[in-house]
Every structure is written in structure tokens, then in C-alpha cells.
């Protein structure tokens, strides 16, 4: 008999005859729903993620490429990598960057790995959404924006549409029905990478990005 059959056999022999009633998650979440405005959700998201040392800039659909260009110059980004096939990527192709070399992701990671680790200073990806309660960005990997793009370069820019901010993680995955089809990698990101493993002293830039900069579009009604 295989290990699988033996383990399952032991568990089955003692499994309760009747399964418990399934948990009802609404009972916890519904009474705490806030019915807040879009601006209030953005404010909560911003407070949350800024508390984790991320920078947030409010901008517009028209202006974000220019802002990104200015931030790249200010941060002395030599090479910025992005997904060339996304709508944001196509916008970037037509934007003038003074000092930064734009490079779109081409091909499989194997041909790019050394550059990603040693020569790309920053990356831009878009966020699928965000979570107000915890100040988290939702990133889904895709062929256009692969997993390593938001992980390996030391500076990570994220483009977020304020209309896609959910009150809680539960709301996001329930109302977008994530269970019906997940990407290879779905991620919540709340700030640059960090650690407190040495004497509980917080240090940023552990293994992932050292800096996280969020460009929020569609944030009308919110002062900058």
C-alpha cells in the first residue's frame, strides 16, 4: 500500500461521520462593511501602504508617463523594464525619457535573467486592484507582466486605478470570483521587502524591491 493510501486510510478511519456546517464568512464581514466612498477607500489604502514605507503619487491617466519619467530621473534609474504589450507599456513607448533607457520584456526569463539581476534598476507593472483595509496592491502575473518583473529589480513602480480598490481582501476575491480562474501567481504586495530578523530592528530592502512607488490614476476629488 502506498504512503498516500495509508495516510488517507488512517484519516478516513477517524473522520467525523458528519462534516461540520461550512463557515459563513459574511457573518463576520457584512456587519463591518463600511459603505465608504471611493475617495475614502483610496485614503485608507494610501495610509496603509505609506505606513509600510511605500511612496504614493496621485496622478491622472494623461499625466502618469511624464511623472514616471521625472521620478526615474530623480531616482537615477538607468534602465526601466516593463511589459511592452500592456496598454501602459504602449503608452510608455511614446513617452520621452531623458536619462532612462526603456526596455520592454522580450522572450523567456532565461535570456533575461542576468540582466534582471544585474542591470535593470527599476520595473513598472500595473496592479489589478488594491485593498483599502491593509494597504495592499493586488498583482496578477501574466505573459505580458511576468512574476520576476515585480520581484528582482530594486525599484518597483506600480500603476493603480483608484476605481479598483476593494475594502477588504475577502471582498476582492469574493466579488471578482478569483476561484474561477487564478493566474500562475497572484500576489498581495504591501510595501517594499523588509525584515526584522536582527534584534527586531526593521530594515527595508531584504530580498525583493528596496523601494515601492505607487502611481494612482483615476483619483479625482482627492487632493495631491
Amino acid at each position: 500500500m502506498s504512503a498516500r493510501d495509508k495516510i488517507l486510510g488512517r484519516l478516513r478511519a477517524h473522520m467525523p461521520a458528519e462534516a461540520m456546517m461550512p463557515p459563513v464568512l459574511e457573518a463576520h464581514y457584512a456587519p463591518r462593511a463600511r459603505g465608504e466612498s471611493k475617495a475614502e477607500r483610496l485614503r485608507r489604502f494610501r495610509t496603509g501602504i505609506e505606513g509600510f514605507q511605500a511612496q504614493v503619487h496621485l496622478t491622472t491617466e494623461d499625466d502618469w508617463p511624464t511623472l514616471l519619467s521625472a521620478l526615474c530621473a530623480q531616482k537615477q534609474v538607468h534602465t526601466l523594464m516593463f511589459g511592452g504589450l500592456t496598454p501602459a507599456g504602449r503608452r510608455l513607448m511614446t513617452t520621452r525619457f531623458e536619462t532612462t533607457v526603456l526596455r520592454s520584456w522580450e522572450g523567456q526569463v532565461e535570456t533575461l535573467k542576468a540582466d534582471l539581476f544585474h542591470r535593470v534598476d527599476a520595473a513598472l507593472t500595473h496592479a489589478r486592484g488594491a485593498i483599502a483595509e491593509t494597504g495592499s496592491l493586488i498583482l496578477w502575473s501574466s505573459p505580458e507582466e511576468p512574476r520576476t518583473l515585480s520581484l528582482v529589480p530594486p525599484l518597483h513602480f506600480v500603476l493603480l486605478d483608484a476605481a479598483t480598490i476593494h475594502p477588504t481582501f475577502f471582498d476582492a476575491l469574493r466579488y471578482e470570483n478569483w476561484a474561477a480562474g487564478l493566474p500562475t501567481n497572484a500576489l498581495l504586495v504591501s510595501g517594499p521587502s523588509k525584515t526584522a530578523d536582527i534584534q527586531q530592528t526593521l530594515a527595508y530592502g531584504a530580498h525583493g524591491p528596496k523601494e515601492l512607488i505607487v502611481l494612482v490614476i483615476n483619483a479625482e476629488g482627492e487632493a495631491s
Binding site: Q108, V109, T134, S136, S141, P143, T184, N185, V189, G208
Partner: peptide, 18 residues
């Protein structure tokens, strides 16, 4: 919340780049 919550659903798919 932690900095990352990583949900992995399978290996590299035919369309994935990494």
C-alpha cells in the same frame, strides 16, 4: 498584513515567460 502574500497555482504555463 505581511509584505507579500504569494498564491501559487501551478508551474510555468505555455504562455508564461517565467
Amino acid at each position: 498584513v505581511s509584505t507579500y502574500f504569494n498564491m501559487i497555482t501551478g508551474p510555468r504555463r505555455s504562455t508564461d515567460q517565467d
